[in-house]
């Protein structure tokens, strides 16, 4: 029996879908059987980010309405030998095509076969959100170091805490720009964590390669050199229960002079 984790944020565009795709891929790389569920009916993206767009035949609404079995609708990711599957959202219906009860039934069915069921939640707190959280046992709240995103995360955490079947939510802070934090132009991590007062699951630095990778339909996690990739892998390991220290955000200084300074132990 696996675990169902909903990935949500309240605000749109903070990186829910990217986080879902990358955590799913990272968990599959660690040898777990993972199923990704896109609940953003009418505005599906997860299939595009995963590069599985043109393999979709059936979708979530087809399953719920009994037009096909779950197994038929699942899209297999060939890169991970039977480890990673995607249940895509429908593009032609809207959020009201599914009820929370139906979602719960569907997720419960998927939990039988997979170690992790990651549910990508749509933005907002309406029907789509209610569907997404209905079947979840755990929740990950994604936010960015912006006041508006933190405000919405706060609202979502309040709503998640009311759901009795979900464990206390955990936080992922996305798109941190270390130089802006350093100058005080961006909220820093401690401030956000103190404000929201929930456990911090991970931090991800702002990385242009993430956009490039998702445009190519290849999650950034597949590129082992990127900083964001390491951050996502760390989060996946924390989900599995390992304790991994947080990444440092300081960028490596380049150039001979700084190397010299480092050699002599001078702090810049």
């Amino acid at each position: 029996m696996g675990e169902a984790i909903v990935i949500t944020s309240g605000k749109g565009g903070v990186g829910k879908t990217t986080t879902t795709a990358n955590l799913g891929t990272a968990l599959a790389l660690l040898g777990k059987r993972v199923c990704l569920v896109d609940t953003d009916i009418g505005l599906r993206n997860l299939d595009v980010v995963m590069g599985l767009e043109n393999r979709i035949i059936y979708d979530l609404v087809d399953v719920v309405e009994g037009r096909c079995t779950v197994q038929k609708a699942l899209v297999k990711d060939k890169r991970f030998d039977d480890k990673l599957y995607l249940l895509p959202a429908a593009q032609t219906s809207d959020k009201s095509a599914v009820t929370p009860e139906q979602m719960k039934q569907l997720v419960d069915e998927l939990k039988q076969d997979y170690d992790y069921v990651l549910i990508d939640c749509p933005a907002g707190i309406e029907q789509g959100y209610k569907n997404a959280v209905a079947g979840a046992d755990e929740a990950i709240v994604v936010t960015t170091p912006e006041v508006s995103a933190v405000r919405d995360a706060d609202r979502i955490i309040g709503l998640l805490e009311k759901e009795e079947h979900i464990k206390p939510p955990r936080l992922v802070i996305n798109r941190i720009r270390s130089h802006m934090v350093k100058n005080g132009d961006m909220l820093d991590i401690d401030e956000i964590v103190m404000h929201l007062s929930i456990d911090l699951l991970g931090i991800i630095a702002d990385d242009e390669n993430v956009i490039k990778a998702s445009n190519n339909g290849e999650p950034i996690v597949l590129d082992p050199a990127s900083k964001a990739s390491i951050a996502y892998r760390n989060i996946a390991r924390r989900i599995l229960g390992e304790s991994v220290p947080l990444q440092t955000l300081e960028e490596e200084q380049k150039g001979v002079f700084s190397k010299l300074k480092k050699f002599f132990g001078v702090r810049s």
């Binding site: 919405d152 609202r155 805490e161």
Partner: peptide
């Protein structure tokens, strides 16, 4: 009335 809780946005 003692209440141990965080009152979040919207509550």
């Amino acid at each position: 009335v003692p209440v141990a809780k965080i009152i979040r946005s919207g509550q």
